[in-house]
């Protein structure tokens, strides 16, 4: 049975996982699940743990298992590229979880082509589609991402994942209509019952930011920031918003940057900034005034 169809018992786990509500995933009660779904749910729990940074726990829990799924989860936990490559080239590359885990490792470590090759072997796995879409987008292959989404929509229109993947692509493609449509996806997600994850809010805010609706974006981000442990991307996008609204040189930005450094000192925004600063300094040295004052 397709675990992503609306009929599934797992819909809540998947929704929680893909809205990054990992605690919800972990606290999900699997006892009532059918025997086929139980291991699937358990895999999600491992992945949620990894996403929460509890890599060691996962590694120790699975160190004894030798099956491909466990090995792929361990590879994900250890961010082990060579193991991922092994798995990708082994006969186990048909397994959905192996594809996702190994694909994630490869994708995250710049093995774009390998990751795509592996993930393309999927058989009706929405997760694989979503991951592919994302990898294409990260590597600026919007055309391929769109193709992936369009193809998946034909057989799985109702899925949250495909909706989200489409929203990602739409945000990249742009234009009022596409932005708006991405916005709707996140808005729907945000207003879904029981949703506490900031992902939807951040997505909503990003879409609004692209739509030029800065006030609404700010409101959504502030809401996301209110939580005890604010979402990293909420912080990052708040910084962006500060700049967009021309308040980039204010106190708030400094504060947010401090917060971001504290939460994720290697965040793209910060790394990029350091790089650009040095780029600026190098570039600026090429010029000087003819006469000293």
């Amino acid at each position: 049975m397709d675990p992503f169809s609306g009929e599934s018992e797992l819909v809540n786990v998947i929704t929680a996982f893909y809205t990054h509500a990992y605690q919800t995933v972990l606290s999900f009660d699997t006892s009532s699940l059918s025997s086929t779904n139980k291991p699937v749910a358990q895999n999600f729990k491992y992945r949620a743990q990894i996403a929460l940074g509890q890599n060691r726990e996962v590694v120790s829990a699975l160190s004894k298992s030798r099956d491909a799924t466990s090995r792929s989860l361990v590879a994900l936990a250890k961010n082990d590229v060579s193991e991922a490559l092994n798995l990708a080239e082994s006969s186990d590359s048909e397994d959905a979880t192996v594809q996702i885990c190994a694909g994630t490792v490869l994708g995250a470590n710049g093995e774009y082509a390998k990751a795509v090759e592996l993930l393309s072997k999927h058989q009706g796995s929405l997760e694989a589609v979503a991951l592919l879409t994302q990898l294409h987008l990260v590597n600026n292959r919007t055309d391929l991402a769109l193709k992936e989404v369009q193809a998946a929509k034909r057989w799985a229109q109702d899925s949250l994942l495909i909706n989200m993947a489409e929203a990602w692509a739409n945000l990249r493609v742009g234009g009022q209509e596409k932005y708006q449509s991405a916005y709707y996806v996140y808005e729907e997600l945000a207003s879904a019952p029981g949703n506490q994850s900031p992902t939807a809010l951040v997505g909503q805010a990003v879409a609004e930011l692209h739509l030029g609706r800065t006030e609404e974006a700010e409101a959504a981000l502030n809401q996301a920031l209110e939580s005890e442990k604010p979402d990293i991307q909420a912080i990052a996008n708040s910084i962006v918003l500060q700049y967009v609204t021309g308040k980039g040189n204010g106190e708030k930005t400094k504060e947010l940057k401090g917060l971001l450094t504290q939460r994720d000192s290697e965040h793209q925004l910060l790394a990029d900034l350091v790089e650009k600063e040095s780029l600026f300094d190098t570039a600026a040295t090429k010029y000087s005034a003819k006469a000293a004052s």
Binding site: F17, Y18, H20, R47, I50, A51, L76, T104, V105, G107, A108, E127, A130, L131, T133, Q134, L135, L137, V138, M164, A165, W168, L171, R172, T199, V202, G203, V206, L209, H210, D231, I232, Q233, A236, N237, I239, V240, Y243, V244, G248, Q268, L269, D272, L273, K276
Partner: peptide, 19 residues
């Protein structure tokens, strides 16, 4: 420069999508 890029988390473990 910093006003030009937004960050969108997608799948876990893969860098955020930059728009």
């Amino acid at each position: 420069y910093q006003a030009s890029r937004t960050f969108l988390t997608a799948s876990a473990g893969v860098p955020a999508i930059i728009n």
